[in-house]
Design a protein around this nucleic acid. Structure first.
Lengths: 186, 186
DNA sequence: GGACAATACGAACGTTCGTGCTAGCCTGTC
DNA sequence: GACAGGCTAGCACGAACGTTCGTATTGTCC
């Protein structure tokens, strides 16, 4: 319960702005009582990232991984957009928020975020490659390049929606992604 | 000098993490002496945004605005990538960093960032429209859609480069942008 | 030369930060 | 019914936060 609250709070206040006192107030606990669970703020941050990853896996990855190849690629994109749209976290994608905050601050927390980013793009790339092997996407497309472009539109939809509140950001991402994937089809 | 330091610092520590004490230490001034210039932290943040905007205008906009139509569109993209690559701000694009930080925190500082974002995308859209009028881009393309996709790749290049340090992020953005614009050409 | 605004300073305010230490309360085991 | 272990709260700490105050130094105009 603590960590779920922490993950939700961190997407709004940031992983650094997530303070022990604020989290204690939000959960109805005392600062010291809550603190005893983690031992340090950094441990709390790492545990929060783990929890966010679990939520993300359950909500985005698991449904999409039931598909394969091109369908998986499209499902991953769609589940991501839906994830942001349904406001599972009030501050949109947890990892987009954390990445922007920590990208210039070395340390184990940042390393953890970089690792999660790598897993995500790796998943997209693998889907592209599988789709190519199945003949659903042209073999001449560079998986890393396609992944970059798709992920860019996903991240931009997340960012624009949070900044402007305009849900058309999702429409533009969906349209851009659909056209881009279609163009990569054989 | 204070504000230039503030803008540089804010891309690393965030606009909120930019503390008066830290900025005073960085500039060699006393906290109170520095504080007197602004009267409040919020005023300091707003002044910092103004300064960042000036730097950005000088470094990105001014050179690109000498072109027109499609050339202007491409120059805006290229200058942006170059701006990040040259590390004018150590934390990449000032406004990408600020937008990610403030997207869920209402107030005048956030409003200011939203306004700057609107100016930037408006500039891209206008370039697209002019290019269409000049027959350099197909009239059937939706300027907002194309702007969304191009800006997505710019922002992603900024984000990926900061997170991974891999300059290939710029290459992928350049390639994606070139192909996307070419596809929009008549 | 003296009044005046601008600029910088050190010291202190109250608050919140992360982090310890200590004591009490549950719950389950013998 | 005693006892042990895991949670939790209370309290205190040093540091840093934004902010305010009084004051010392400057440079400019009369």
């Amino acid at each position: 319960m603590i960590l779920h609250t922490a993950a939700r709070l961190a997407t709004v206040e940031g992983l650094d702005g997530l303070t022990i006192g604020r989290l204690a107030a939000e959960t109805g606990m005392s600062k010291s009582g809550l603190f005893a669970h983690f031992g340090s703020k950094e441990e709390l941050q790492l545990a929060t990232i783990d929890t966010a990853e679990e939520i993300y896996e359950e909500d985005v990855l698991r449904p999409a991984l039931q598909e394969e190849g091109r369908a998986r690629l499209e499902a991953l994109c769609e589940r991501f957009l839906s994830h942001v749209d349904r406001k599972v976290f009030p501050g949109g994608c947890f990892f987009a928020s954390a990445a922007a905050e920590l990208d210039t601050r070395p340390g184990p927390v940042r390393d953890r975020i970089v690792a999660v980013y790598g897993e995500w793009t790796g998943l997209l790339e693998d889907s592209v490659r599988t789709a190519q092997e199945r003949g659903e996407l042209d073999r001449s497309v560079d998986p890393a390049q396609l992944t970059f472009e798709l992920n860019a539109m996903l991240a931009e939809a997340n960012g624009v929606y949070l900044l402007t509140g305009d849900p058309r950001a999702f429409d533009m991402a969906r349209r851009g992604i659909a056209e881009r994937v279609e163009r990569a089809a054989a």
